[in-house]
Protein backbone atom coordinates (compact mmCIF):
# COMPACT_ATOMS: atom_id res chain seq x y z
CA UNK A 1 0.00 0.00 0.00
CA UNK A 2 1.45 3.32 -1.03
CA UNK A 3 1.05 6.45 1.04
CA UNK A 4 -2.09 8.45 0.31
CA UNK A 5 -3.90 11.44 1.69
CA UNK A 6 -7.32 11.17 3.21
CA UNK A 7 -10.38 13.41 3.07
CA UNK A 8 -13.69 12.83 4.79
CA UNK A 9 -16.77 14.42 3.27
CA UNK A 10 -20.30 14.70 4.58
CA UNK A 11 -22.34 15.35 1.46
CA UNK A 12 -22.41 13.99 -2.05
CA UNK A 13 -21.82 17.27 -3.79
CA UNK A 14 -18.74 17.90 -1.72
CA UNK A 15 -17.63 14.37 -2.45
CA UNK A 16 -17.90 14.78 -6.18
CA UNK A 17 -15.94 18.00 -5.97
CA UNK A 18 -13.28 16.76 -3.58
CA UNK A 19 -12.02 14.26 -6.07
CA UNK A 20 -9.79 14.52 -9.03
CA UNK A 21 -7.42 12.35 -10.95
CA UNK A 22 -5.61 9.99 -8.62
CA UNK A 23 -8.42 9.99 -6.10
CA UNK A 24 -10.80 7.23 -5.13
CA UNK A 25 -14.00 7.05 -3.12
CA UNK A 26 -13.80 4.97 0.03
CA UNK A 27 -17.06 3.45 1.26
CA UNK A 28 -16.97 -0.05 2.76
CA UNK A 29 -13.46 -0.47 1.42
CA UNK A 30 -13.92 -4.19 0.91
CA UNK A 31 -12.45 -4.09 -2.59
CA UNK A 32 -10.46 -0.88 -2.60
CA UNK A 33 -8.32 -1.54 0.47
CA UNK A 34 -7.54 -5.10 -0.63
CA UNK A 35 -6.36 -3.90 -4.00
CA UNK A 36 -4.30 -1.12 -2.42
CA UNK A 37 -2.56 -3.62 -0.16
CA UNK A 38 -1.88 -5.75 -3.21
CA UNK A 39 -0.38 -2.68 -4.94
CA UNK A 40 -2.93 -2.96 -7.77
CA UNK A 41 -4.61 0.36 -6.98
CA UNK A 42 -2.47 3.29 -5.95
CA UNK A 43 -4.78 6.24 -5.30
CA UNK A 44 -3.16 9.40 -4.07
CA UNK A 45 -6.26 10.66 -2.29
CA UNK A 46 -8.97 8.65 -0.56
CA UNK A 47 -12.27 10.47 -0.29
CA UNK A 48 -14.12 8.84 2.57
CA UNK A 49 -17.86 8.91 1.85
CA UNK A 50 -18.97 6.92 4.89
CA UNK A 51 -20.36 10.13 6.30
CA UNK A 52 -23.08 9.88 3.66
CA UNK A 53 -24.36 6.53 4.92
CA UNK A 54 -26.99 8.06 7.16
CA UNK A 55 -27.90 10.97 4.89
CA UNK A 56 -30.73 9.09 3.22
CA UNK A 57 -32.80 6.09 4.31
CA UNK A 58 -31.53 2.75 2.97
CA UNK A 59 -34.70 1.88 1.08
CA UNK A 60 -37.71 4.05 0.29
CA UNK A 61 -41.03 3.09 -1.32
CA UNK A 62 -41.79 5.53 -4.12
CA UNK A 63 -44.55 6.10 -6.60
CA UNK A 64 -42.69 4.21 -9.30
CA UNK A 65 -41.15 1.48 -7.18
CA UNK A 66 -38.28 1.71 -4.70
CA UNK A 67 -35.24 3.85 -4.23
CA UNK A 68 -32.16 2.27 -2.67
CA UNK A 69 -29.48 4.49 -1.23
CA UNK A 70 -26.11 3.69 -2.77
CA UNK A 71 -24.65 4.19 0.70
CA UNK A 72 -26.82 1.51 2.30
CA UNK A 73 -25.02 -1.66 3.28
CA UNK A 74 -25.75 -4.89 1.44
CA UNK A 75 -27.03 -6.36 4.70
CA UNK A 76 -29.49 -3.51 5.27
CA UNK A 77 -31.13 -3.94 1.88
CA UNK A 78 -31.12 -7.73 2.01
CA UNK A 79 -33.07 -7.52 5.27
CA UNK A 80 -35.60 -4.92 4.13
CA UNK A 81 -39.11 -6.47 4.30
CA UNK A 82 -40.42 -4.60 1.25
CA UNK A 83 -37.46 -5.71 -0.81
CA UNK A 84 -37.88 -9.29 0.34
CA UNK A 85 -41.54 -9.27 -0.59
CA UNK A 86 -41.59 -7.22 -3.78
CA UNK A 87 -38.09 -7.80 -5.14
CA UNK A 88 -36.86 -11.19 -3.90
CA UNK A 89 -34.20 -11.31 -6.61
CA UNK A 90 -32.59 -8.22 -5.06
CA UNK A 91 -32.58 -9.63 -1.55
CA UNK A 92 -31.26 -12.99 -2.71
CA UNK A 93 -28.51 -11.57 -4.88
CA UNK A 94 -27.27 -9.57 -1.91
CA UNK A 95 -27.59 -12.37 0.62
CA UNK A 96 -25.80 -14.91 -1.52
CA UNK A 97 -22.78 -12.65 -1.91
CA UNK A 98 -19.64 -12.49 0.22
CA UNK A 99 -19.90 -13.13 3.95
CA UNK A 100 -22.01 -11.62 6.70
CA UNK A 101 -19.08 -9.44 7.77
CA UNK A 102 -18.52 -8.12 4.27
CA UNK A 103 -22.23 -7.54 3.71
CA UNK A 104 -22.27 -5.38 6.83
CA UNK A 105 -19.39 -3.27 5.55
CA UNK A 106 -19.95 -3.09 1.81
CA UNK A 107 -22.26 -0.51 0.28
CA UNK A 108 -24.52 -0.98 -2.72
CA UNK A 109 -22.64 1.60 -4.74
CA UNK A 110 -19.31 -0.05 -4.07
CA UNK A 111 -20.81 -3.44 -4.73
CA UNK A 112 -21.78 -2.74 -8.31
CA UNK A 113 -18.33 -1.26 -8.96
CA UNK A 114 -16.36 -4.15 -7.49
CA UNK A 115 -13.41 -5.25 -9.55
CA UNK A 116 -12.83 -8.57 -11.20
CA UNK A 117 -11.36 -11.48 -9.25
CA UNK A 118 -9.03 -12.42 -12.09
CA UNK A 119 -5.75 -13.09 -10.28
CA UNK A 120 -3.74 -11.89 -13.25
CA UNK A 121 -5.35 -8.51 -12.50
CA UNK A 122 -5.06 -8.78 -8.73
CA UNK A 123 -1.33 -9.52 -8.62
CA UNK A 124 0.87 -6.95 -10.36
CA UNK A 125 3.74 -9.40 -10.62
CA UNK A 126 1.90 -11.01 -13.54
CA UNK A 127 3.10 -8.86 -16.37
CA UNK A 128 0.21 -9.11 -18.80
CA UNK A 129 -3.07 -7.54 -17.81
CA UNK A 130 -4.70 -5.00 -20.09
CA UNK A 131 -7.10 -4.03 -17.36
CA UNK A 132 -4.32 -3.13 -14.95
CA UNK A 133 -1.70 -2.05 -17.46
CA UNK A 134 -3.25 -1.09 -20.81
CA UNK A 135 -1.43 -2.64 -23.71
CA UNK A 136 0.37 -5.27 -21.66
CA UNK A 137 -1.70 -8.20 -22.94
CA UNK A 138 -4.00 -10.69 -21.29
CA UNK A 139 -2.41 -13.55 -19.37
CA UNK A 140 -5.76 -15.22 -18.83
CA UNK A 141 -6.44 -15.93 -22.50
CA UNK A 142 -4.07 -18.89 -22.48
CA UNK A 143 -3.54 -19.16 -18.76
CA UNK A 144 -5.65 -20.37 -15.87
CA UNK A 145 -9.14 -19.36 -16.93
CA UNK A 146 -11.61 -21.81 -15.43
CA UNK A 147 -13.47 -18.92 -13.80
CA UNK A 148 -13.25 -16.48 -16.67
CA UNK A 149 -16.06 -15.17 -18.86
CA UNK A 150 -17.56 -16.60 -22.03
CA UNK A 151 -19.90 -13.70 -22.82
CA UNK A 152 -18.87 -10.16 -23.70
CA UNK A 153 -15.23 -11.18 -24.01
CA UNK A 154 -12.67 -9.62 -26.29
CA UNK A 155 -9.19 -10.49 -27.47
CA UNK A 156 -7.96 -8.07 -24.81
CA UNK A 157 -9.75 -9.27 -21.70
CA UNK A 158 -11.87 -12.19 -20.50
CA UNK A 159 -12.12 -11.17 -16.84
CA UNK A 160 -15.45 -12.00 -15.26
CA UNK A 161 -17.58 -9.31 -13.70
CA UNK A 162 -17.89 -10.84 -10.23
CA UNK A 163 -21.00 -9.23 -8.76
CA UNK A 164 -24.42 -10.65 -8.01
CA UNK A 165 -26.51 -7.58 -7.12
CA UNK A 166 -25.82 -6.04 -10.52
CA UNK A 167 -27.46 -9.00 -12.24
CA UNK A 168 -30.65 -8.35 -10.31
CA UNK A 169 -30.51 -4.64 -11.14
CA UNK A 170 -29.96 -5.13 -14.84
CA UNK A 171 -32.70 -7.75 -15.04
CA UNK A 172 -35.19 -5.37 -13.41
CA UNK A 173 -34.36 -2.41 -15.67
CA UNK A 174 -33.09 -0.45 -12.70
CA UNK A 175 -31.69 3.03 -13.03
CA UNK A 176 -28.72 4.70 -11.36
CA UNK A 177 -28.69 8.15 -9.82
CA UNK A 178 -25.33 9.83 -9.77
CA UNK A 179 -23.81 13.13 -8.95
CA UNK A 180 -20.77 14.40 -10.74
CA UNK A 181 -18.81 17.59 -11.20
CA UNK A 182 -21.50 18.80 -13.60
CA UNK A 183 -24.39 17.86 -11.33
CA UNK A 184 -26.81 14.98 -10.89
CA UNK A 185 -27.99 12.63 -13.60
CA UNK A 186 -29.91 9.37 -13.98
CA UNK A 187 -28.74 6.61 -16.28
CA UNK A 188 -30.05 3.14 -16.99
CA UNK A 189 -28.19 0.51 -15.03
CA UNK A 190 -27.67 -1.24 -18.34
CA UNK A 191 -25.55 1.73 -19.40
CA UNK A 192 -23.32 1.74 -16.33
CA UNK A 193 -20.85 -1.00 -17.22
CA UNK A 194 -18.86 -1.50 -20.38
CA UNK A 195 -17.71 -4.67 -22.05
CA UNK A 196 -13.91 -4.77 -22.25
CA UNK A 197 -13.54 -4.34 -26.01
CA UNK A 198 -10.09 -2.90 -26.60
CA UNK A 199 -10.19 -0.75 -23.45
CA UNK A 200 -10.69 -3.24 -20.61
CA UNK A 201 -9.25 -0.74 -18.13
CA UNK A 202 -12.35 1.42 -18.62
CA UNK A 203 -15.01 -0.54 -16.82
CA UNK A 204 -17.89 1.94 -16.53
CA UNK A 205 -19.39 4.96 -18.18
CA UNK A 206 -19.07 7.06 -15.06
CA UNK A 207 -17.21 10.30 -15.50
CA UNK A 208 -14.17 10.89 -13.31
CA UNK A 209 -15.39 11.91 -9.83
CA UNK A 210 -18.95 10.86 -10.57
CA UNK A 211 -20.50 9.26 -7.51
CA UNK A 212 -23.41 6.80 -7.48
CA UNK A 213 -26.03 7.99 -5.00
CA UNK A 214 -29.01 5.66 -5.53
CA UNK A 215 -30.55 2.81 -7.46
CA UNK A 216 -34.13 3.08 -8.70
CA UNK A 217 -36.14 -0.11 -8.91
CA UNK A 218 -39.19 0.22 -11.12
CA UNK A 219 -42.47 -1.30 -10.04
CA UNK A 220 -43.41 -4.04 -12.51
CA UNK A 221 -45.62 -7.12 -12.64
CA UNK A 222 -42.64 -9.49 -12.71
CA UNK A 223 -40.71 -8.32 -9.67
CA UNK A 224 -42.45 -10.50 -7.11
CA UNK A 225 -41.92 -13.65 -9.17
CA UNK A 226 -38.18 -13.19 -9.23
CA UNK A 227 -35.19 -15.04 -7.91
CA UNK A 228 -31.44 -15.28 -8.01
CA UNK A 229 -29.78 -18.65 -8.50
CA UNK A 230 -26.07 -18.78 -7.87
CA UNK A 231 -23.96 -21.82 -8.71
CA UNK A 232 -20.50 -22.21 -7.23
CA UNK A 233 -18.02 -24.82 -6.08
CA UNK A 234 -18.78 -24.19 -2.44
CA UNK A 235 -22.07 -23.18 -1.02
CA UNK A 236 -21.19 -19.81 0.40
CA UNK A 237 -18.50 -17.15 0.41
CA UNK A 238 -17.59 -17.60 -3.21
CA UNK A 239 -18.18 -15.77 -6.44
CA UNK A 240 -20.52 -17.35 -8.97
CA UNK A 241 -19.30 -19.82 -11.54
CA UNK A 242 -22.65 -19.07 -13.13
CA UNK A 243 -25.75 -17.30 -11.89
CA UNK A 244 -29.12 -16.24 -13.16
CA UNK A 245 -31.41 -13.41 -12.11
CA UNK A 246 -34.86 -14.20 -13.36
CA UNK A 247 -38.19 -12.35 -13.12
CA UNK A 248 -41.40 -13.59 -14.69
CA UNK A 249 -44.79 -12.11 -15.31
CA UNK A 250 -47.11 -15.09 -15.83
CA UNK A 251 -50.63 -15.22 -17.15
CA UNK A 252 -51.98 -18.55 -16.01
CA UNK A 253 -49.24 -20.88 -17.20
CA UNK A 254 -47.83 -18.75 -19.92
CA UNK A 255 -45.15 -16.09 -19.83
CA UNK A 256 -46.33 -12.58 -20.44
CA UNK A 257 -42.91 -11.08 -19.95
CA UNK A 258 -39.58 -12.36 -18.71
CA UNK A 259 -36.48 -10.62 -17.42
CA UNK A 260 -33.19 -12.48 -17.40
CA UNK A 261 -29.63 -11.61 -16.44
CA UNK A 262 -26.64 -13.90 -16.26
CA UNK A 263 -23.71 -13.64 -13.88
CA UNK A 264 -20.40 -15.38 -13.41
CA UNK A 265 -20.00 -15.99 -17.12
CA UNK A 266 -19.82 -12.49 -18.57
CA UNK A 267 -17.43 -9.56 -18.51
CA UNK A 268 -20.16 -7.19 -17.38
CA UNK A 269 -23.65 -7.46 -15.89
CA UNK A 270 -25.37 -9.37 -18.66
CA UNK A 271 -28.93 -9.02 -19.80
CA UNK A 272 -30.25 -11.85 -22.00
CA UNK A 273 -32.87 -10.03 -24.07
CA UNK A 274 -33.15 -12.65 -26.79
CA UNK A 275 -33.78 -15.39 -24.25
CA UNK A 276 -36.52 -13.26 -22.68
CA UNK A 277 -38.23 -12.91 -26.05
CA UNK A 278 -37.96 -16.64 -26.66
CA UNK A 279 -40.17 -17.28 -23.65
CA UNK A 280 -42.99 -14.85 -24.35
CA UNK A 281 -46.31 -16.61 -24.74
CA UNK A 282 -44.90 -19.96 -23.68
CA UNK A 283 -45.42 -22.15 -20.67
CA UNK A 284 -42.26 -22.74 -18.63
CA UNK A 285 -41.19 -26.33 -18.75
CA UNK A 286 -37.84 -27.99 -19.18
CA UNK A 287 -38.11 -27.79 -22.95
CA UNK A 288 -39.00 -24.12 -23.22
CA UNK A 289 -36.54 -23.19 -20.49
CA UNK A 290 -33.80 -25.08 -22.30
CA UNK A 291 -34.74 -23.32 -25.49
CA UNK A 292 -34.31 -19.93 -23.86
CA UNK A 293 -31.04 -21.03 -22.32
CA UNK A 294 -29.69 -22.08 -25.71
CA UNK A 295 -30.55 -18.64 -27.01
CA UNK A 296 -28.95 -16.91 -24.02
CA UNK A 297 -25.60 -18.62 -24.57
CA UNK A 298 -25.73 -18.73 -28.34
CA UNK A 299 -22.90 -16.27 -28.81
CA UNK A 300 -20.67 -17.47 -26.01
CA UNK A 301 -16.99 -17.64 -26.75
CA UNK A 302 -15.03 -19.93 -24.42
CA UNK A 303 -11.37 -20.69 -23.81
CA UNK A 304 -10.19 -24.26 -23.17
CA UNK A 305 -10.40 -23.87 -19.41
CA UNK A 306 -13.92 -22.47 -19.26
CA UNK A 307 -15.71 -24.37 -22.03
CA UNK A 308 -17.91 -25.91 -19.33
CA UNK A 309 -19.38 -22.51 -18.50
CA UNK A 310 -21.53 -22.55 -21.60
CA UNK A 311 -23.30 -25.70 -20.52
CA UNK A 312 -23.30 -24.57 -16.87
CA UNK A 313 -24.75 -21.18 -17.85
CA UNK A 314 -27.53 -22.85 -19.79
CA UNK A 315 -28.40 -25.25 -17.03
CA UNK A 316 -28.30 -22.50 -14.44
CA UNK A 317 -30.77 -20.47 -16.40
CA UNK A 318 -33.00 -23.47 -17.06
CA UNK A 319 -33.10 -24.29 -13.38
CA UNK A 320 -33.75 -20.68 -12.42
CA UNK A 321 -36.65 -20.42 -14.88
CA UNK A 322 -38.21 -23.66 -13.62
CA UNK A 323 -37.87 -22.49 -10.03
CA UNK A 324 -39.29 -19.04 -10.79
CA UNK A 325 -42.28 -20.50 -12.62
CA UNK A 326 -43.09 -22.72 -9.66
CA UNK A 327 -42.74 -19.96 -7.06
CA UNK A 328 -45.78 -19.23 -4.94
CA UNK A 329 -46.42 -15.54 -5.35
CA UNK A 330 -49.09 -13.56 -3.53
CA UNK A 331 -50.89 -11.11 -5.74
Amino acid sequence: MRPFSYVRVDDAIAASQATGSGSAFLAGGTTLLDLMKLDVLRPEVLVDINGLRDASPPATMTQGGMRLSAFASMAQIAADPNIRRDYPVIAQSLNLAASAQLRNMATLGGNVLQRTRCNYFRDPSWKACNKREPGSGCAALDGVNRKHAVLGVSAHCIATYPGDFAQALIALDAAVETIGPVGPRVIKFDALHRAPGDTPHVETNLAPSELITAFILPRAPWTRRSLYLKIRDRQSYEFALASAAVALDMEEDSVRQARIALGGIATKPWRAHAAEQALVGKAINEETANGASQVALAHASPRPGNQYKIELGRRTLTRALLQAASMEVRA
Binding site: N119, K147, Q235, E238
Partner: peptide, 16 residues
Amino acid sequence: FYNTDLAEYLVPVNAD
Protein backbone atom coordinates in the same frame (compact mmCIF):
# COMPACT_ATOMS: atom_id res chain seq x y z
CA PHE B 1 0.84 -21.04 -8.86
CA TYR B 2 -2.22 -19.00 -9.75
CA ASN B 3 -4.86 -19.22 -7.03
CA THR B 4 -2.65 -18.20 -4.14
CA ASP B 5 -5.26 -16.79 -1.79
CA LEU B 6 -8.14 -18.12 0.27
CA ALA B 7 -10.73 -16.68 -2.08
CA GLU B 8 -9.55 -18.88 -4.93
CA TYR B 9 -7.93 -21.79 -3.07
CA LEU B 10 -11.17 -23.23 -1.78
CA VAL B 11 -11.79 -24.88 1.54
CA PRO B 12 -15.30 -25.85 2.52
CA VAL B 13 -17.70 -23.71 4.53
CA ASN B 14 -20.09 -25.14 7.10
CA ALA B 15 -22.90 -25.32 4.57
CA ASP B 16 -20.88 -27.67 2.38
